[in-house]
Amino acid sequence: MNMDENYKKFAERHAPKSPIVKDCLMAFWVGGLICVIGQAFSDFYKSRGASEETTKMLVPVTLIFLAAIFTGIGVFDRIAKHAGAGTLVPITGFANSVVAPAIDNKAEGWILGLGAKIFIIAGPVILYGTLASVIYGLIYYIVGLF
């Protein structure tokens, strides 16, 4: 038996929508809080005598480390459930998307499990991010010729 396209439209209309205002507010303050934490680490490293360059490296490394730890102890997804884009968009989301499949696929072995599946979510970001930067570089180069 086949349903028609009208049923699809009906089901889409009938489905309750995600609470977009609440989601945006949560994403705003949690995302902002992560930035404040990043800034606090930045100030801390600088106060301990790190150079501007070193600080720029240390802050993302610290946030990635914390996101990985929180993923490992099973806390990250509980926060992300409420925070949404607030935890996804900062570098914490990227760290989580690498660590989560790594934990999950360990049962299938270090090579074909963890090794092959670790970038299953982050892979497209890495591929198309690299591709976009190549295109950006080319445009930058061509514009520079004139």
Binding site: A15, P16, K17, S18, D23, T71, G72, G74, F76, D77, I79, A80, K81, A83, G84, T87, L88, G93, N96, S97, V99, A100, P101, I103, D104, N105, I120, I121
Partner: peptide, 17 residues
């Protein structure tokens, strides 16, 4: 979850349906 959706610890949001 592993087979049909995302890794267990992945931080995503679900829709109301």
């Amino acid at each position: 979850e592993r087979q049909f959706r995302y890794p267990l610890e992945y931080g995503g949001q679900r829709t109301p349906t």
